[in-house]
Design a protein around this nucleic acid. Structure first.
Lengths: 224, 224
DNA sequence: GTTTGGATAAGTGGATACAAAAATGCAGTG
DNA sequence: CACTGCATTTTTGTATCCACTTATCCAAAC
């Protein structure tokens, strides 16, 4: 799934790892507001460790673009401007497009079945609420790009999904289950089924950029 | 230029920053071999500080993909397998393609003049040796994608150039100034001059992937 | 001769302590 | 009443220390 952004041995668990996962989860859920300062001591106290592993977790989160680190000024929640949000979608569009290009030639009937299942699950989750829907949506995309078998590509795309996650959630709540979502993803899956590599890549790119446009359209949720 | 991968205030200089830059430079120059272990204490001694800031620098380098960090096992120089090297080029191709797509509509005569100058400078550097050539080559590419004005895109592409830098250098030395380089980049600049966005994007993608193919062709330099 | 076990050494991760830097608040001045 | 400068407080950055994990090496057993 999404969680293993950084290579981590699942059996060994360090305090830094714990801090990283804890903070990533909180940030994904939008528990901290954009621009808010993260105080190492407080967080260390929350999860019962000293400041040091928390500091190291900050560095990883900064690399993921979730927080900003300035020398002697501490750690603030990154929050994306509208421009940055758009940029994230632009990058996603070409990366996921590339993934599709790599994946399409190898797709089989079993893959298509799984895609159909994931689409249905995403739809159902939409009834429940934004949190579920966003995760199912990520799951559907992740299923596709993971088939590429390209570790770096997978990690980069996953990281982008994490970065935009709070905004997707806000957007979904705000417009109340966008009707276009089902249709869009059905189109995408159809394009994958067609076996036409160039078409599928283009549809994926347009799908991602289309979402960006919708998102940008309604508001700028968490301006920095 | 390339160096500011992570947002850093240039006036404030912490020990961690110093360690990061020191190690990045060494890694770019291929001073450490792939798979070699980096011992915090040794490096700390070299630049006159304690292990701690070095450890934090390791985390940033790991995020850049230059080293690998395993719990309780320390830090080893990443080194790319042939597959990983190819993947880096694939990602570069779509990202730099995107950059070109964004940049082409706004290009003016002045930009073209600068591109011509950079091409000549790259050529001349080729006479001197691989180190200069690789830097000039990066400079040429950086000039193009930097015009996109997309901070995240710029940082990601720059990071990829850094990661593949040692391999470009080895390759350049090995085949002794590839003749195709001049021609390839002339084509690229011509495509930019044409003003045809789709064409320019395609030429950039093909240029990058073409380099990957050449590089993969002759050997696998630093197999992990 | 190879393998397995354990003792020892080396090295990493984390906590605490200390130094340096930035933020804050207050008083004095224009 | 706003502004400047200084003292205090807060917070960050780095060093050192300790505990625990991993690696190394040698000896004993098969």
């Amino acid at each position: 799934m999404i969680s293993n952004l950084s290579a981590a041995n699942s059996t060994v668990s360090t305090a830094e790892e714990e801090a990283y996962l804890y903070l990533q989860k909180a940030l994904r859920l939008g528990r901290y507001k954009a621009g808010e300062r993260l105080i190492p001591e407080d967080i260390a106290a929350e999860i019962g460790m000293s400041r040091m592993p928390v500091r190291e977790a900050f560095r990883r989160l900064a690399a993921d673009g979730l927080v900003t680190l300035r020398p002697n000024r501490g750690c603030v929640v990154a929050g994306l401007t509208l421009d940055e949000l758009n940029e994230a979608f632009e990058i996603r569009s070409v990366l996921e497009g590339l993934a599709v290009r790599l994946v399409v030639p190898g797709l089989t009937a079993e893959h298509f079945e799984e895609l159909d299942r994931l689409l249905i699950r995403m739809e159902r989750a939409g009834e429940a609420g934004s949190t579920d829907w966003v995760l199912r949506h990520q799951e559907l995309h992740a299923y596709i790009y993971t088939l590429s078998g390209r570790p770096k590509l997978i990690r980069q795309i996953a990281a982008l999904h994490v970065a935009i996650e709070p905004y997707m959630r806000i957007w979904f709540d705000y417009v109340d289950k966008p009707l276009s979502a089902r249709e869009e993803h059905q189109n995408l899956i159809d394009a994958l089924k067609s076996g036409d590599v160039a078409l599928a890549e283009r549809v994926m790119q347009e799908h991602v950029l289309g979402t960006a446009a919708l998102l940008a359209d309604f508001a700028s949720p968490g301006r920095r």
